[in-house]
Simulated assay, not measured.
Amino acid sequence: MITELKENYGYLFEDALLNEINNVGTFKEVPEGYMLMDIGDYIKSMPLLVSGAVKILREDDKGDELLLYFIERGDTCAMTLSCCMGQKKSEIRAVAETPTKLIMIPVEKMSEWMSKYKSWQNFILQSYHDRMTELLEAIDSIAFLKMDERLFKYLKDKAMVNRNDEIQVTHQNIAFDLHTSRVVISRLLKSLENKGKIILNRNNIKILDL
């Protein structure tokens, strides 16, 4: 695990912190679609992503989901941090977007390392800032973008976290993530194809305008 830590976090953390993470962290490898955290769960550990990507979702009173943002290699989740520090139940759902490797850090180490390691403190504060920026972008997207613009942004974001301009996703799953209907998504996808922005294939969508 120390090799993965140094490759992904060596530029952020000093050797002493990397060794502590190696000693107390638990390495976890999960497949695409695996639910790492659900709404209402108590958080006992914080994830550091080594590879892959995780999507963070909210749920309304009717059980419909809305995609907030993705976290990738070298990231952690600010909402997880908040729940860890406040010992609260999770208000989000975290699902592996791709096959993902991560290191789970025990919650009791959070505050200890904040005072012990400046690099950890900087990492946590930067993570809060990055996730807050992404949350504001998600709010702006809902409030100010038309649905076809939201859809195309979603497709580009998904392609970027998958590091592939061809993404495997169903119209129904897109509809779940964007909190709309499959019929609307299918119509808008066809419109984006007619505009030359994507190519619709039977089992995937190719993004042309990244």
Rank of each mutant, 00 (worst) to 15 (best):
M1F: 05
M1Q: 11
T3E: 15
L5N: 06
K6E: 15
Y9C: 03
Y9T: 01
G10Y: 08
Y11T: 11
L12C: 05
L12A: 04
L17I: 02
N22E: 11
N22P: 02
G25V: 12
T26K: 14
F27I: 12
K28P: 03
E29G: 04
P31V: 05
E32S: 08
E32W: 07
G33N: 01
G33D: 01
Y34S: 10
M35W: 13
I39C: 02
I39L: 02
I39E: 03
D41W: 13
I43T: 06
I43M: 11
K44P: 00
M46T: 09
V50M: 15
S51A: 04
G52Y: 01
V54I: 15
I56A: 00
I56K: 03
G63A: 03
D64T: 02
E65Y: 15
L66M: 06
L66E: 05
L67Y: 14
Y69G: 00
F70I: 03
I71E: 12
M79T: 10
T80N: 12
L81W: 05
L81G: 02
C84A: 01
G86Y: 06
G86F: 04
Q87S: 11
K88I: 00
E91C: 07
I92N: 01
E97C: 09
T98Y: 07
T100S: 09
I103P: 02
I105N: 01
M110H: 05
M110G: 01
M110R: 04
E112V: 08
M114H: 05
Y117L: 08
K118Q: 11
W120Y: 14
W120C: 02
N122T: 07
L125S: 13
R131N: 13
R131Q: 12
L135V: 11
L135I: 13
L136T: 06
E137Q: 12
A138C: 12
A143C: 07
F144Q: 09
D148G: 00
F152W: 08
L155Q: 04
K156G: 07
K156S: 11
K156R: 15
D157Y: 08
K158S: 04
A159Q: 08
A159V: 14
V161Q: 04
V161L: 07
E166G: 00
V169D: 13
T170K: 12
Q172N: 06
N173D: 10
I174E: 02
A175T: 03
A175V: 09
L178H: 01
T180F: 15
V183W: 08
V184S: 14
L192I: 00
E193A: 06
G196V: 00
I198W: 09
I198M: 15
I199R: 15
N201W: 07
N204W: 12
I205A: 02
I205T: 07
I207F: 05
I207D: 02
I207K: 01
D209E: 15
D209M: 15
D209A: 14
